[in-house]
């Protein structure tokens, strides 16, 4: 535990003492803010139009569901932005240690590889939590002017968190493979994108194959969270994905020793 904490704290400090954390958090929140504004203003226009129509035809004004029509698309946007930014957060975790040679200190200290991997994983997760926390401010804004349901917001954030941890776990893995941060980031991005898009082809193949493919898709599992549905099937999927990434990181680091680089 002490070793895990030592690694974790060092990584978190290192994030926040370099520009990377501020650039990533800043750009993420700006991007999220722009799309939040677009989606909300679109939603409000729609509300107004519906109201006007209702007055014209002298009907009771229809209720618009802010959760389904505004928050859900916002959450889908966030899941995409996280995909852009999290590889930049994880890319240096191991690559930089390899490039500068600090890995030699780490792997000759009484710290197990598991402690080191988890320390790094949770450090990146902490940065991600700060990013998500920032977007929460936008959501609070909705409570001031409307009355969205809390439940779906909670599940959506849970989904975002799990999804992001999937990105991070594989980000750690790809950074164990190379001493080049750019390669680590790009391979993470491409790999995750593949698992995102795997469901899109389901319409073009046989139904049974399509179903299997979409059951592997990261984003198919996310939609229920965004809608406010909590299903253990999705949670199990994400947790297995995270475990897979961490397990592969572990195997990769252990085999580094045998390969010698």
């Amino acid at each position: 535990m002490r070793n895990f904490l030592a690694i974790y704290q060092r990584e978190v400090k290192s994030y926040f003492s370099s520009p990377i954390a501020y650039v990533v958090i800043g750009l993420f929140l700006i991007l999220a803010g722009i799309f939040f504004y677009l989606i909300i203003s679109n939603f409000m226009q729609m509300c107004m139009r519906v109201d006007m129509m209702a007055q014209q035809y002298r009907m009771a004004p229809q209720k618009m569901n802010v959760n389904l029509m505004a928050i859900r698309p916002i959450m889908h946007n966030l899941s995409l932005f996280a995909l852009f930014f999290l590889p930049l957060v994880t890319m240096r975790l191991y690559s930089d240690e390899k490039r500068t040679g600090t890995i030699e200190l780490l792997m000759t200290s009484p710290v197990t590889n598991l402690q080191a991997i988890l320390g790094k994983f949770f450090a990146a997760a902490t940065l991600y939590l700060v990013m998500l926390g920032g977007t929460f401010l936008y959501i609070i804004f909705l409570f001031l002017y409307g009355n969205p349901e809390v439940g779906p917001i909670f599940t959506a954030y849970l989904g975002l968190l799990l999804l992001g941890l999937c990105y991070i776990a594989f980000g750690v893995f790809f950074s164990t493979l190379t001493d080049n941060q750019i390669i680590a980031a790009v391979s993470t991005f491409v790999f995750i994108l593949f698992f995102w898009a795997i469901g899109w082809v389901s319409g073009f193949v046989s139904p049974s194959l399509g179903e299997t493919l979409s059951s592997f898709s990261l984003i198919e599992h996310f939609d229920d969270f965004a809608k406010g549905v909590l299903d253990t099937k999705h949670i199990v999927y994400y947790i297995s994905f995270i475990f897979m990434g961490l397990f592969l990181s572990f195997v990769s680091i252990e085999s580094t020793r045998w390969r010698g680089r």
Binding site: A6, T100, G101, T102, L105
Partner: peptide
């Protein structure tokens, strides 16, 4: 162990770095 290339975290201050090493060395 002093490796061929000193294993330094470039962004850390000397004291913080040594405190970190002391911590992971137990």
């Amino acid at each position: 162990y002093l490796p061929e290339n000193p294993p330094l975290y470039q962004d850390m201050r000397v004291r913080d770095y040594l405190e970190f090493v002391a911590k992971i060395k137990g």
